[in-house]
Computed example of a mutant assay.
Amino acid sequence: MDINSINDHSPWWARAFSIFLAVMLFFTVANLFYIEIFGINGINHYSFGNEPINPGEYPENGTSEEQRKYNYSLSEWEDYQAYQEMMQELEDSSLTEITQVFAVLSILVGIPAIAMFWTQNEKMLQFGIAYGAITTIGEVWKAYISSDIIASFMESVPGGADYSWMAKISVLTSGICGIVFIALAIVLHNMYHNLNTMPESGFHLKVDNPGFSDSNHGDNDL
């Protein structure tokens, strides 16, 4: 069997990766426009005119029902204030600008990367690593900035402290995802462009035996 036939893989392995990359890039573009239109706050629970209002002073002379409603309204108001504080901290952290910059870089590198993987071009490795590095740096940076802010908010709401660890490990998960992406790009490149040559066996190696040359042994030569 021809050794090169080992590397005759179906082009759809790389094309499937190209499609996956295109989907990622689509969401990057969508997120870029989303942030540009709606800001870092986006569309959230308080975007439909249902913001809670300050309940004011505690009704000491009110009925038990009025006091119960007050406590509930106060809890909603405090959650709303904590949420607004978190979003303001995210705004002040330049998270929007970082997201936009890395989104543009991802688009500039991602579009040719899609073409490289679709056609199994030799430069698929360079573009794949470049795209993976850009997205990984961007996601890790954003996670590093936002993780403590989000974790603090989660710890401020009832029951949220039990899940605040999810925000804290976002830096690690972002890095792992980026490493996996780059590893897949390397594997796919080697599938199509790492043609190994079979070394000759020891039985077929040509060994040049040097001829015996006459040596002078002085007066004892016969």
Rank of each mutant, 00 (worst) to 15 (best):
N194W: 01
H193D: 04
G62R: 02
S47P: 05
P11M: 13
D219K: 09
A185Y: 00
A16F: 14
T173F: 03
E200D: 13
M154T: 01
Y83V: 03
D79E: 13
S106Y: 07
S73M: 11
S147L: 02
Y80L: 05
P199N: 04
V157K: 02
S64L: 12
G160T: 05
L95N: 10
I6H: 15
A16D: 14
I19Q: 02
L95V: 06
G110K: 04
I145R: 11
A143D: 01
A185L: 00
Q88D: 15
I19T: 12
G42Y: 02
V140S: 06
M198Y: 04
I40H: 04
L32R: 05
G62K: 01
F203K: 07
W12S: 13
F26W: 06
Y192H: 08
D214Q: 09
N50W: 03
N4F: 11
T135N: 12
S18L: 05
R15H: 03
E78T: 12
M87S: 07
L205G: 06
Q84C: 10
E60C: 07
G42L: 07
H217Y: 06
N61D: 15
S18Q: 08
L222Q: 14
L108G: 15
G39Y: 00
S5A: 14
T173G: 01
G175H: 00
Y144T: 15
F48Y: 07
G110H: 03
I186Y: 07
I40N: 03
T96Q: 06
E78A: 10
P210C: 07
S106H: 05
Q120H: 11
W77V: 01
L95M: 08
E200Y: 00
I186A: 09
S106Q: 12
T136K: 00
H189F: 12
W13Q: 05
F38Q: 04
I176D: 00
I179L: 10
N54A: 12
L222N: 12
Y192N: 02
Q81P: 07
M191G: 09
Q67G: 09
I145V: 09
I114A: 12
Y144I: 12
I19F: 08
I43C: 02
T197E: 15
W12E: 15
D148E: 15
T28M: 08
G128F: 00
W77F: 10
S64R: 13
F20S: 13
D2E: 14
F117T: 08
M87L: 11
V171I: 14
G218Q: 06
I3S: 14
F203W: 06
E57F: 09
S146R: 03
T119C: 07
I169S: 12
I19C: 08
